[in-house]
């Protein structure tokens, strides 16, 4: 399966996730016995190459955020392995992780809850660099100025507190903190979902510029396909803990193979009133519970094309660079 997802790049992947499973136990009763598992991430294999952006899309509960958190090791994976920068970090202890953490950073959806409200921006930026000894103390100020320049916040704002900033500016501060440690990988977990449309574009452009300038690799997690399309090189579509389709963004948008991908693309209202009502495959029902996923193909309960076999046998992710997990993949148009 790993071979199935190689790209044209010959370089070694920066990140390789193999057979990753992250389950949350469901406990019940007086003795909190485990009576089942919420299979948030269920057997995922992914590779990320230096300098690329892999978009991870799917609806709520599909496990996309859990993957991000498992990679950074904010969650402990149940099974599988995570190789980062040539090192197997799956079993790293907290203290082992200290040397890896600066190289992998995360940007969160809500920058306000990830910034300490009692610290000034200057201190907020200095703290991680001091902890990890990124620059000598004497050069901290200079580095903070540089970071603020990079993310487009006036240097004079160093003395301000997080509540004095707008949502977009706070996200810029979150980004400055993430890049301050010279990371190789940044996991962006819905970084623009909480922002207004006009501000989203500013932040997406900033992320793109920083990637070019600093050679960053992004895992970009979002439910908004527009943002993902704009920023990603490749896209992985998730449904109920599984990757159902992965490929270059051009392929995914032009020739979606999995019926779920197609339905997802179709569900977005197009900002062109003359095209209204022309679509569309409207999926019926809700996403099933990840604690008790359907048998066979997990999408069969909502799939307009499901056949008898879909209930029985789980399809594997197949097809080389543009892979999909479907017994009856859609033909290219």
């Amino acid at each position: 399966m790993t071979e199935a997802i190689t790209t044209t790049t010959a370089a070694e992947p920066l990140l390789r996730v193999q057979g990753l499973k992250t389950y949350y136990p469901i406990r019940r009763g007086l003795l909190s016995r485990t009576v089942g598992n919420v299979k948030a991430v269920d057997d995922i294999t992914l590779e990320l190459y230096p300098g690329e952006t892999l978009g991870l899309v799917g609806e709520s509960g599909c496990g996309k955020s859990t993957i991000g958190r498992s990679i950074i090791r904010l969650e402990n994976p149940t099974d599988g392995s995570i190789w980062f920068d040539g090192e197997d970090i799956t079993k790293h202890s907290i203290s082992d992780l200290r040397s890896v953490r600066p190289k992998m950073q995360m940007i969160f959806q809500d920058p306000f809850s990830s910034l300490n409200p009692r610290m000034r921006v200057g201190e907020l930026l200095a703290e991680p660099m001091r902890v990890h000894g990124i620059v000598p103390d004497g050069e901290l100020e200079k580095r903070i100025d540089w970071l603020l320049d990079m993310v487009g916040i006036p240097r004079s704002y160093k003395q301000r507190f997080p509540h004095e900033f707008s949502g977009g500016q706070r996200q810029r501060i979150g980004i400055a903190r993430a890049i301050s440690l010279n990371p190789k990988l940044i996991v962006c977990d819905e970084p623009v979902s909480a922002l207004d449309v006009s501000i989203q574009a500013q932040i997406l452009n900033l992320l793109k510029d920083l990637q070019k300038e600093l050679g960053l690799t992004y895992l970009f997690i979002a439910h908004g396909l527009g943002a993902v399309k704009y920023i990603s090189n490749r896209i992985a579509v998730m449904y109920l803990g599984k990757v159902v389709e992965i490929g270059t963004k051009e392929e995914i948008f032009a020739n979606p193979r999995h019926p779920y991908t197609q339905a997802l693309l179709n569900a977005y209202p197009v900002p062109e009133p003359r095209k209204r009502g022309q679509q569309r495959i409207v999926l019926q029902g809700d996403v099933p519970s990840p604690a008790n996923p359907p048998s066979g193909c997990r999408f069969h309960t909502r799939c307009p094309f499901a056949q008898a076999i879909c209930k029985e046998i789980e399809p594997q992710l197949e097809g080389g660079e543009h892979a999909s997990a479907c017994h009856y993949p859609l033909a290219a148009t």
Binding site: V197, I199, Q200, K208, A227, K229, Y230, F253, V270
Partner: peptide
């Protein structure tokens, strides 16, 4: 006009930089 241009479009390519409205409300 700015709002219209700052939505990343799903079906035709938006190219290299997305237009954005500078500043904030």
């Amino acid at each position: 006009q700015g709002l219209m241009k700052s939505i990343p479009h799903l079906h035709n390519d938006t190219g290299d930089t997305l237009e954005s409205i500078p500043g904030a409300v």
